[in-house]
Amino acid sequence: MAKDKKNCSINFLDLPWEDVLVPHILVHVPLRGILSLQRVSKSFQSLVQLYLSNCHCFDSTELGSQLPRSTFCSLLKDNTVLQKLDLQSCSNWLTDKELLPIIGQNHHLLQINLNNCVHLSRQSLVAISLSCPHLKNIGLGHCEWVDCLSLRSLADHCKQLEVIDLTACRHLKDEAICFLVQKSSRLKSLSLAVNANISDVAIEETAKNCRDLEHLDLTGCLRVKNESIRTLAEYCHKVKSLKVKHCHNVTESSLGILRKRDVALDIEPPLQRALVLLQDVVGFAPFINLQI
């Protein structure tokens, strides 16, 4: 019996690939480590290819900004089951040519991050809207190629949107945002930051249609005023945070309503702002705890 135990050994690759290695072991290995396994042997290379064709999440940030275009295209060419796709680290070179095939064969995507991917076009967003009906979360920050027509397509076809980042999508105007929120009543988080075209019209429509809204970023939206913030306070009782820094027409007369509900604001109360200013000017602060 002892001799049998001594001679009994199991090779890692002898374990069932699809039932054990891929779903229970490789899923816990960082993506960079997964790719390193390809260099061990041809068998490991086949295992990695199987893993990549069945993985539900691809996060390019795990590989940094050094992921080559050719490597990226080969990694996901056989995958049809992606649920989360983060391509922010590919922003320097990602174009429609690389993205469209992946979007076209993955119809179960729930989350897509394209923040800073400036070399894409509206064609990519239209493709996402047609191929990903279950999409809940999309990041389009600083993608100036997002226009009113492509956003309308997204709103028309992706009915389950809960999170959308439109930071610095400068071509969007009130009309496009109103259409979006009328179609996306499930929205919980919305960023319209750094968009001088957005006014009270869009914010009031957002408040009236998205009653479950929890996070709203209006940083730098210069045309937003107190009126829409009051409407937000009236309709959105679940709101947890609001960013209005550099919104010069938003004052404490509207923010105070939300402040009383313990909504996290990026603007300090008037007294605290005055004390901080005093400290900056005269070099000392009164004996008051500024953290209160």
Rank of each mutant, 00 (worst) to 15 (best):
H215G: 03
C148A: 15
H171I: 07
S253Q: 05
S189C: 13
R186Y: 13
H215M: 08
C210V: 09
V163C: 08
K240P: 04
I203H: 03
Q279K: 15
A193W: 07
S253R: 04
H215R: 09
W145S: 08
Y235R: 05
C236R: 01
F179W: 14
I203L: 06
D147F: 04
N226S: 01
L213I: 14
E252Q: 08
A176M: 10
L216C: 08
T167V: 10
S150G: 11
V146K: 07
L232D: 03
K240G: 04
E205C: 11
L190H: 10
E175V: 15
S191K: 04
N209V: 13
R259Q: 13
C148Y: 03
N226E: 00
R259V: 11
L255N: 00
H157C: 15
S189D: 08
G256F: 02
I257K: 04
V239Y: 04
L277E: 11
N249K: 05
P270N: 08
L161K: 02
I177E: 01
S189R: 12
L218C: 02
N195A: 00
S254N: 05
L154D: 02
L166Q: 03
L151Q: 07
A155V: 13
I257F: 09
N226W: 00
K183E: 11
I177Q: 01
S150W: 10
V194Q: 03
N197C: 04
A202C: 07
C148L: 06
S189W: 08
A207G: 05
K188Q: 15
T231W: 00
D266V: 10
E162L: 14
R259T: 10
G256C: 08
N197V: 00
R211S: 11
L277T: 11
S191F: 03
K240S: 11
N226P: 01
D262H: 12
R273N: 04
S241F: 05
K225T: 15
A196I: 09
G283S: 04
V244N: 00
L218T: 00
D280K: 14
E234F: 13
V263A: 09
N249C: 07
K260W: 02
S254A: 12
H237T: 13
R261Y: 06
V239I: 15
L275R: 07
C210Y: 03
A274K: 08
I257G: 01
R170Q: 12
K238P: 02
V281Q: 13
H248L: 12
E227A: 07
L166G: 02
E162I: 12
V250A: 02
V276P: 00
H246V: 10
S184P: 06
K188Y: 04
P270C: 06
H246Q: 09
T206S: 12
L265G: 10
V239R: 04
A155L: 14
K183C: 14
V194G: 00
N195S: 04
Q272L: 04
S191R: 02
S150P: 09
K245Y: 10
V281W: 11
S185K: 11
L232Y: 06
H157T: 14
N209E: 06
D156R: 12
I257V: 11
L277H: 08
S199F: 09
C236D: 03
R273K: 12
T231D: 00
P286T: 07
L172I: 09
S185F: 11
K208D: 05
E144I: 10
P269S: 11
V250N: 02
S199N: 05
C221H: 00
R223E: 06
V276D: 03
A264G: 05
L265P: 11
H171R: 12
E175I: 15
L242V: 14
V250R: 02
H237M: 08
A196Q: 06
